[in-house]
Design a protein around this nucleic acid. Structure first.
Lengths: 358, 358
DNA sequence: GTCAAGTGAGAAAAGGTTTTCTCATGCAAT
DNA sequence: ATTGCATGAGAAAACCTTTTCTCACTTGAC
């Protein structure tokens, strides 16, 4: 076999050599080291570093300076043991391939890193047993709170979080009675899209979307009906490009006037529809405007032409969820209920027109 | 405003009511509760639960039973403080939108959950300051190890992890001297792809790929040359569908015989190429075989026809990285070096042929 | 009846930090 | 000169486990 083995970290000689504090204990640098280096007791050292207690300004400064010099960093485990705050939260998701979870996660992390909070990511794939294991592990590790997130607004995670003695916030997944839930305002998003088409002068707007049993499909379709009327049918199907393609075939095979705009339930459908239109020689956006939903960059930006679409602002959603769970963890009161966050229109080239005036 | 506020968790009346153990302390259930409920000392309780020490079998059983009944779970913070193992690792990534990180992460989590290890996810977006903040936070929280992962084999994360007193493993990103690094074997993957084309009887195999400065591009191109010879050119470009599209235009505009197969550097390029071929009336796979790289489901499966492609087995890569960092954390010696993990061919319909014989 | 060995269980220390309590000193006021 | 008070700093307890050490008691052997 081989000669050199990676065991170096067992003996942190680096550290030992650079700073031989107080008899070379083999562990990390503790507040004891700081105290003895500064010639004070550990209680004084602690108070100096935390800006608490009474002491001479000179002492406080000296302790702080020395702590900085020897690279002291408090052990969060010990601190957490006493304060009952671990500065750690758990993020539970069943969206393994991350279309929705990733932006949410980025938002949470972004909001919490400033507060010194780290995030445990737990991917449970609709497996109740696995979910329970992860929840138990998080609880054992004394998380300050849990955020549950998923890939669908109208589905629960396969684990009951309602009676934990730790705050829980739901983001982009169905919550429980009296919980705090964040979700996108799909109705407003759909309105945004359809109004954009109307403003562009389109009148025969068709809606190609996903399965009717999805709550967000019904919400979007509802808003579509309100704004566009019932002049064109709603085509329910699945969330795939090929359905978008097929739906266009269906629409164009019908006798009579063709739609002059397609409001699609997601970007994949919109992409399939765009491809189908191009194959039929129908020009986008000259003859027909196409608008998507989700702003999934990889799909929307690569469609020909690039898709105008609705962004659900999932990162902002995550940010708010993070701030909320933090507030709860700190005991600040938070109103329960469902909070709908507005969507935003992303204007690319599939509808003509310019960016919205706002 | 509103009436009911979510503060219930502050007073876990649920728990309190269900189990009024030993004077109703307001915190969690500790080993003290177990001990007093079982009529033994805390040391005996601890030994009973951990199957250590000497005691009567009856006592041991009784303690365990009672612990289970009152729902005792040891506080990982306290345990970690003493054992110096937090059963926590940190995962550092700069791949925010997760094409590569997500599978790696899933593998890590999958491998470690069985060992009671939880994973801190830290998304640093090529921001050295942010990276340092996250690393410090992880270290404060006494992680047992760190896995660094990225979106490119030949790039470092913007933070130096080489002198931490905690083990570090690199996965799908460039490591440091004497570290353990896991990466996909792109050469073998490319060989797999080109050999598959050759076996299907293709002789004029072109290679459309990404920017030449990518290490993996050069490795794949190298393997391509070895297997396919130098009969067709390598077209370097960018990682986009439109480049795939354009490259096909370039190839088909040349005089002389056209390629009968395209080995593409990733699935997006392959998709663009497939679209271009279809638009030219060239049938895939009848006239030309197309093969991709990455097995990015959302692209590969939605291409027409669905793409045969090379999967880098990132989940397995993550699994091994997880197991390795765990081994290091437990002090088991591990050989340093770069470990290349084999890729696997995913056969769909863009090359004809059946699944490999293995 | 004494001693050795073995058995079951508790006391105490340790881990790193924060916080409360106590103490000593010095100074001003009586 | 004694009291009262503010100030600076340390001792000790607490958080929850695990582990080592010690002790009391039983049993079997001489």
């Amino acid at each position: 076999m081989t000669v050199r083995l990676v065991k170096a970290f067992l003996k942190p000689l680096q550290k030992e050599d650079v700073l031989n504090i107080s008899g070379g204990k083999r562990g990390r640098i503790t507040i004891h080291e700081v105290a003895s280096a500064a010639g004070v007791s550990i209680s004084t050292a602690s108070k100096a570093l935390n800006d608490t207690g009474r002491m001479g300004a000179e002492t406080r400064e000296r302790v702080k300076r020395i702590a900085g010099e020897i690279g002291y960093r408090p052990n969060a485990l010990a601190r957490g043991l006493l304060s009952k705050r671990s500065f750690t939260i758990g993020l539970l998701t069943n969206d393994t391939y991350g279309r929705f979870t990733l932006p949410v996660m980025a938002g949470i992390s972004d909001a919490l890193v400033d507060h010194g909070v780290s995030v445990f990511l737990c991917a449970i794939e609709d497996d109740p047993a696995l979910a329970q294991i992860h929840v138990d592990a998080m609880l054992d590790k004394q998380v300050d709170g849990i955020i549950a997130t998923g890939k669908r607004l109208d589905r629960r995670l396969p684990v009951d979080l309602s009676n934990l003695h730790v705050p829980v916030v739901y983001a982009f997944t169905e919550g429980t009675q009296n919980s705090v839930t964040f979700r996108s305002d799909d109705e407003q998003g759909a309105r945004l899209a359809v109004e954009w088409l109307v403003k562009a002068g389109r009148r025969r707007i068709a809606h190609i979307t996903g399965p009717e049993e999805f709550f967000s499909v019904r919400e979007r379709a509802g808003a579509y009906h309100v704004v566009a009327g019932h002049r064109e049918p709603v085509l329910y199907g699945v969330w795939s490009e090929s359905w978008g393609h097929e739906a266009v075939d269906q629409l164009w095979k019908r006798p009579g006037e063709k739609p002059d705009a397609l409001f699609c339930g997601n970007d994949q459908i919109a992409r399939g529809a765009s491809d189908a239109l191009r194959e039929r020689g129908v020009k986008v956006p000259r003859d027909v405007s196409v608008i998507g939903f989700d702003n999934w960059e990889i799909v929307a930006a690569q469609t020909r032409p690039p898709l105008t679409t609705v962004d659900m602002e999932l990162k902002e959603l995550g940010r708010q969820a993070g701030l909320t769970v933090l507030a709860l963890a700190e005991g600040r009161p938070v109103e329960p209920g469902v909070r709908k966050l507005p969507c935003r229109l992303i204007v690319r080239q599939s509808c003509g027109g310019k960016a919205p005036k706002d």
